[in-house]
Amino acid sequence: MTANAHRAVPVPAAPTRGDTRRRVPRLTTTSGVMTYILIALAILLPVPYMLQLPGPVFNTLGDYQGKPMIDVSGAKTYPTDGRIDMLTVAVSGGPGRDTYASQALGALLHSKETVIPTEAYYPLETTREDVAASNAVEMSSSQDVAVAAAMGQLDKPYKVHLLVGEVVPDSPAEAKLRKGDRIISVNGKKLDSDPAAARVMSETVQSSDSVDIVVERGDEDVDVAMKPETIDGRKAIGISMKQDFEFPIDVSFNVEGIGGPSAGTMFALAIIDELTPGAMTGGKHVAGTGEIDPAGNVGPIGGARQKVAASTARGAKLFLSPADNCAEVIEAADQSKITVARIDTLDDAQNAVEKYAAGDTSDLKKCPADGADNNEKGQ
């Protein structure tokens, strides 16, 4: 044997139990920290969604910032009592404002909040200033239309003139109609002073291969003819229309900072209440929502879930819901605390409030229990 035959071969020592305990936690800790960081980053990332939350509530029969919310003059008015609440929706996110994933996840678990894609409401290029301007225009328009609806409900005559709003470039109307033209007739149908003029104008254009329009421009009448073109799937001549009202009374609204069209029905009810003897509510607390047209038809609005939640929280016992919002309202309403009445028209709304004031809600026109639409009267 050589001298090296008995030399021991060195074998690496196995790590002791203590060594293992020291090394494994370091890897686990590092992995855990990275996981928490990634989760935190995901939660704090902005997402393209808006959150709808219950907003402030305003009594249309009361004051706002020290002044009457609705001030009627030019006719005899009567003292009233109770509350006819208009409701608002607070929006988190949207153009110019970020919504974070954590907020969206929290809202999904909250029955009073709704998460909606921003693009479902606004084109990508919309700015915060665009939103504010649009809301202001819609609020102003809803005020005029509310007065018109109230005048119709009270059988008080008024005049309405249909004006050309904007003219779309490269449309049939370009160079023929101008912003501010007062539309007198279309295809021989007189429109001036007709509350339904906008609808008649739209229906005539969509059903005609050519239209002959007479407008008042300055001190003269101008006759223009054109052929509608298909724009976005429907016949059009390329104008927006604006209504200019002449009322027998003056109504001023103190609603600075509040936007959108959904208070129209509540405004109309408050005006009727001020112009008729006695308190429509009987001193009770009602709330509701709904866009309205000059003929008194009530249309659906956004944020119905938030609005019924806000009205319940403020103590209202009757909620007026547009028919097309029934499903959302019934799902969100605590019907042990608030009665939901379905309204298709301003007349429905007034009848519901007066019946509630008299203590009889047995034959109210109600949203069906499953929230489905129901067109039968008295249901």
Rank of each mutant, 00 (worst) to 15 (best):
R23K: 13
K307D: 11
A327D: 14
G165S: 04
A225V: 08
Q153M: 15
A236W: 05
G82N: 13
G278I: 05
A323D: 09
T2I: 07
T2S: 15
S262G: 14
L191V: 07
A236T: 07
G233F: 03
T60G: 08
R305S: 15
R314G: 08
E166C: 06
L108V: 09
D192I: 05
M280L: 12
L41T: 10
D192L: 10
L124C: 09
V9S: 12
V286C: 05
V186T: 06
P195T: 01
N254I: 00
G93E: 04
D155H: 06
R17E: 09
N254W: 05
R7N: 08
E216K: 03
A263L: 00
D273F: 09
D98Q: 09
R217P: 08
K242S: 02
V115P: 14
A42P: 00
V160Y: 13
D63E: 12
T2A: 15
I116C: 03
Y78P: 12
V353G: 02
A270N: 00
C367D: 04
Y122L: 13
F58A: 02
Q65P: 06
G278E: 07
V251S: 06
N254E: 12
D155C: 03
S207P: 00
E246R: 14
I338T: 08
F58W: 09
G180Y: 07
V9T: 15
L41D: 08
I70N: 06
V222T: 14
L163G: 09
A225S: 13
M34T: 03
G238V: 05
